Computed example of a mutant assay.
Amino acid sequence: MNDKVILQSTLTCPQCGHRETETMPTDACQWFYPCKGCGTLLKPKPGDCCVFCSYGSVPCPPVQLENQRGCCSEV
Rank of each mutant, 00 (worst) to 15 (best):
C49D: 13
K4R: 12
C16S: 04
T12G: 01
L41K: 05
C13P: 03
K4I: 13
D3G: 08
Q8N: 13
C49N: 10
D27L: 04
D27R: 08
T10N: 00
V75R: 10
P34D: 05
T40M: 11
C38N: 06
V75K: 15
K4M: 11
K36P: 11
Q68C: 02
G47H: 00
W31R: 12
K36G: 01
T12Q: 06
G70L: 03
C13I: 12
C16E: 04
L7M: 06
P46G: 00
Y55V: 02
S54E: 03
T23Q: 09
P59N: 10
V63T: 02
P34T: 01
S54C: 00
C72Q: 12
P14N: 12
S54L: 01
C49T: 00
V75M: 12
V5C: 07
K45A: 12
C49K: 14
D3F: 09
F32P: 02
S73G: 05
P34G: 02
P34H: 03
V63D: 10
L42Y: 08
G70A: 08
G70M: 05
S73V: 03
S73L: 11
P59K: 02
S57R: 10
H18E: 04
M1G: 12
T40D: 11
M1L: 14
C29F: 11
Q30H: 15
Q8R: 14
E66T: 15
C16M: 02
L7N: 13
P46A: 07
V58I: 10
N2K: 11
P25M: 13
C35R: 03
Q64R: 09
Y55W: 01
D27S: 01
T12D: 07
E74H: 01
A28H: 14
P46I: 03
S9T: 08
T21L: 06
Q68L: 06
C60H: 03
L7I: 01
Q68S: 11
G47C: 00
G56K: 02
K36A: 06
K45E: 13
R69T: 15
S54A: 05
C50K: 09
P61K: 05
I6S: 09
C53V: 00
C72S: 13
